[in-house]
Computed example of a mutant assay.
Amino acid sequence: MTEMLTTPQGRTLALNRVEGQGPAVIFLGGFRSDMEGTKALHLEGWARENGRAFVRFDYSGHGASGGAFEDGSIGDWRDDAAAVLDTVPGPKILVGSSMGGWISLLLARDRGDVAGLVTIAAAPDFTEDGYWAGFDEAARAQLAETGVVHVPSEYGEPYPITRRLIEEGRAVLVLRTPLSLPMPVRFLQGTADVDVPEAWAHRLLAHAEGDDLRLTLVKGADHRFSDPDCLALIVASLEEVLGRLAA
């Protein structure tokens, strides 16, 4: 059953919760995605089968949550995720996909209740290193003048990339300052991902600091990372993190 949560900032979020054993697993979806995606639902099924506490949710401006996508930013969506985490007692395991990987890195760095992390095609700093770096002078001028540039997407309608998204994103970058991850972390990345280059995964692994960090590359996997083998790898990585904590 879908719950509605009002955040400290006054935004309304939709979430689905499975009661069970902790540490709870929380799925953080990607840019313009929602909690009804293949990976989120697959993990919910795993949680139900294993009696594991689990939460999936929509950021503001996404899915069933309130607000307009164009009004949001990485910091806003980080705060949305933090509000969800605050409803879950005890340590948490985060599974962050794409933008959710960036947000989960922020939470793992800044909070004391993140006990483990799995990222899927993590996209830290993508507003700067992806969109802004890829804009030509005309696009940058349009962004400055109108406040928005519409970028084609293979997933549907063009994405509105706002000036606020770019400018606010610079306040929450994670690859320009130390990134301490003192918990079990598993980074997953497909080599055929055209949205998040494989090089970004190597950069993240090289930059992050921690004693239990591993990167797994899947040859031929794309950004969706949702075929049966990829879904099985996500679960296996999650179970490995949980096993590390139990040990």
Rank of each mutant, 00 (worst) to 15 (best):
M4Y: 15
R17N: 00
D211I: 00
E49P: 06
P178W: 11
T2R: 15
W102E: 05
A115V: 10
P197E: 06
V95S: 07
S237W: 00
V55A: 07
K92L: 02
E36L: 09
F54P: 10
D79S: 15
A115L: 07
P197A: 10
A123Q: 00
Y131N: 06
P178N: 01
L143N: 01
G169M: 07
I26N: 12
A53I: 05
A199T: 14
T127M: 15
A123P: 07
T12V: 14
A108H: 09
P178F: 06
C230H: 08
A201G: 02
Q189D: 04
R78L: 00
L213E: 09
G67V: 03
V88H: 10
A192T: 06
E157N: 06
E145N: 05
A141P: 00
G243L: 05
L242E: 12
N50Y: 01
L107Y: 08
G45T: 15
L28K: 12
I103D: 07
H42P: 02
G210N: 06
A138E: 15
L217T: 04
G116V: 08
P178Y: 04
L94S: 05
P152G: 12
H223G: 08
D71F: 12
G210V: 11
H42F: 15
V151I: 14
D193E: 08
D79I: 00
Q21V: 14
A199W: 08
Q9I: 03
G90H: 01
K219G: 08
L85N: 09
G72W: 03
T177Q: 15
G22E: 08
A14R: 12
L188M: 04
P197S: 00
I74H: 10
G190E: 09
M35K: 14
I234Q: 05
A108E: 15
V174W: 03
R244A: 12
V174M: 01
E3Y: 12
D110C: 08
A122M: 05
P184K: 13
T2Y: 06
G156F: 04
H223D: 10
Y155M: 05
G90F: 02
L238R: 09
D212N: 07
A201W: 07
S60G: 15
V95C: 10
L13E: 04
A141M: 01
H150R: 13
R11C: 02
G147V: 07
A199C: 05
R32I: 03
I120G: 13
D80L: 01
A144H: 11
